[in-house]
Structure formats: C-alpha cells, structure tokens
Write a protein that binds this DNA or RNA. Structure first.
Lengths: 125, 125
DNA sequence: CTACTATATTAGAATATGCTTATATTAGCA
DNA sequence: TGCTAATATAAGCATATTCTAATATAGTAG
C-alpha cells in the first residue's frame, strides 16, 4: 500500500522563523495530536515492567489475572496493579471482572505493536 | 504469516514459586533480551521531543541537519543534539557528515515503526 | 455482621529523565 | 596560525517516573 496520501503529516509548510537559512530544506511541521497520541502509547510500552507484562499476557493461552502476573514479574501487587492501569488507560489491555479477579488481555493495538517488534527482529535489518 | 513459531517467547514453563495457585493458568516467562531490546526502542521513541524529531525527519524530502531541527522543535541546540544522539544509539536514525553539518535520516526500523502507528490510526480499531 | 482475598488507590521516597548553561570538539576559511 | 560556525559533551537543576508500604474498596464465605 502507498502511504504517501494517508500520511498524517502536513508537508511543505512554513517553518517558524528560519525561512532563509543556509544549510538545508524546510522541515515540515508535524500534527501535534499525532505526536501526543503516539507518544502516549510508546511511553506506556517503553518500560521494562509494563512491556514484560504485555509480553506475558500475550504469551499466555488465555487472559491472565493480576495475582499470577504479580508472581511472574517479581514486584509488589501495587506495582503490578499500577502498571496494568497505565496500560489500560493507554488502550493496550482490556480487563474483565470475574468474581474478585480481574483478567487482563491485550487489545488489537498492543497485539499489532508487539508483532511489529517481532517482525523487526526477524527481518534483522 | 503465522507467528506462532517465530514467537520469541518460551511457552508453558514453570513460573517462579506459584505452581499450585488457584486462580488461573501459568504465566510463561519472556525472553529477557527481547524485553530489554524492545524497551530500548520504545523508550527512545516515547518522548515528545524525540518522536517529533523522528516525525519531522521522516516528513522531510531529504535528510535533515541539526540546525533546522533545532529551529523546528523550539529547543536549544544542546537538547536537540542530545535527543538525536539517543535516537542514534537506539538505532532509529543514521547520520552522515557533510562539512561541519550532520544530516540525519531514519533507519528502516524507525520507518517501519512510524508506519505501524499510522496504520493503527488509519484502521481506527 | 466479620473475616479473608483480590485488586485499586494514595503517599512518599529513591531514582531517572530532559532540559539549560557552559565548555569541548571539529570543520572551513582568512 | 586564529576566528567563526555547527555539533557534541558535561554538569547540574527541576521535574517525572516507579517503586514500596499503607490504606481503601469490592467480592466471597462463614
């Protein structure tokens, strides 16, 4: 698929205050919302604890409860709960309540991102 | 492509110390190196300044010198240099020297990651 | 009701991050 | 050589992050 049209970046636009500089071309501005939204996802995943949780949830056959994740990553219950909350508000996991347990699983976004990283490693470019 | 075989996660394995717990299945362990390597990339991208730099470099027609990026993101020369260094050591940008200028462009990894994010937004799942 | 279990939330301390300022390096030119 | 421009690096401060410990909430069982 060609991505030039769907690209959310506005091209060829006045940069702010450096119109006639010497060294190279204008640098187009980037959609502010795009940056903020993507960084939200990236920074939620860009942490050892949270990324390991995502990986473990994905590797499990079914959805996973907090108590088992807690044992798996070796942190306090509170730390795991906070990490999962952050992943939840970033839209990377969903949760389902069953009795007093909460079962977490990945969203499609998270699945796709993890797959992309696996692909990068596989292509070893 | 089926990803079940290339998946770098070791499945169905003793979790550490919670063998007979009640609530749910075992949580497989995750390759430590995988987590560390991916988080390296994710945390490098997961910052407003650095992600905006990546977006701007990508949006430019050719590779971009530090001075123009500096003007574009509105931070000090030092801040931009540090951000680009971080992106460089994460393997997200390459740099080429021409005279006293340094021209930065994206690596294939960075291209692919940004494309993935655009795709997530486009599919609006 | 009480007691217990699973999870969430709050508070606070230790550490990490990201900027600015100042200084170092490197290239080009007189 | 010395001067200037482009970039990199170092030091330090302000703020953000991420834990732990303590407490709150909700659900289950007696």
């Amino acid at each position: 698929m060609s991505r030039d049209e769907t690209d959310p970046i506005s091209r060829a636009e006045q940069s702010e205050g450096t119109a006639g500089t010497a060294c190279c071309a204008e640098v187009p501005k980037v959609e502010e919302d795009t940056v903020v939204a993507d960084v939200q996802l990236l920074s939620a995943l860009g942490n050892d604890t949270r990324y390991e949780l995502v990986r473990r949830i994905r590797a499990a056959e079914s959805d996973v409860c907090v108590c088992d994740l807690e044992a798996a990553v070796g942190l306090s219950q509170s730390a795991v709960s906070q990490a999962l909350s952050r992943l939840y508000s970033a839209g990377l996991v969903t949760r389902r309540k069953e009795g007093s347990w909460r079962y977490y699983s990945l969203t499609d976004d998270a699945e796709q991102l993890v797959e992309t990283f696996d692909a990068l490693r596989t292509d070893d470019e």
